[in-house]
Amino acid sequence: ARLLHGSIFAKVIEGLRELVNEATWECSGNGITLQAMDSSHVALVSLVMRSEGFESYRCDRNMSLGISLVSMSKVLKTMGKDDSLTIRVNDDSDSIIIAMESQNQDKFADYELRLMDLDSEHLGIPDTDYSCAIKMPSSEFSRICRDMSIMGDSVLICTTKEGVKFSAKGDLGQGSIRLVQTTNIEKEEEAVIIEMKEAVALTFAVRYLSMFCKAAPLSPQVGLSLSEDTPLMCEFKIAEMGHVRFYLAPKIED
């Protein structure tokens, strides 16, 4: 699999590696997918990178590759920001080859990472017709998570037709941030757009939301989908090739 902009892959890895340290990458003719839960099985991440999004892609037979995201992240940190990236696995090999090429083709780096033997537990993610779908700038969402984490470890997300409200309370006291739906949309990327079938009010652990925001460099917008008694879906699109979707189970009043 070859990417002209290797930085896209680095952003994917940086977006996943705090939530999951290692994961099984499923490679097929259609592209690469990954599904993994965090260690406490509270959150799940689903990655899709379609083959047509790569500059070139070939997969002669389906492979499940156990990869340490922490090690992959260390290797990708050596990549130049404009480097192209090629990832290769030979048929009977127990390692993955990561090749980086500088833009003016004068520097070639090759790394080989040992593959891991991981037992991949796969969950079925049901198609959900969410009560509420919010689109907002990913930087804004990152900022809200950071600000709310000052006040408490849980954030209540309430949606109404006017907008969406994030609130947190703890020993210090409490705080809330309300975003109003954008009316005159000049730039889609900066808009807050709320499609609401019915109002929802759900509580989530803010430290997971903050971990999801590590994937924000992938996309200027984030999609948040909510329904009562349903995991939140937090989606960052990967331009022209797929998405990273995080799911987080809600917290409930005892």
Binding site: M37, V42, G124, S154, P231
Partner: peptide, 14 residues
């Protein structure tokens, strides 16, 4: 206090 649910409460293991 609110209690954190597990993701497998909602998504079934295949």
């Amino acid at each position: 206090m609110n209690r954190q649910l597990g993701i497998s409460t909602f998504f079934l293991t295949l």
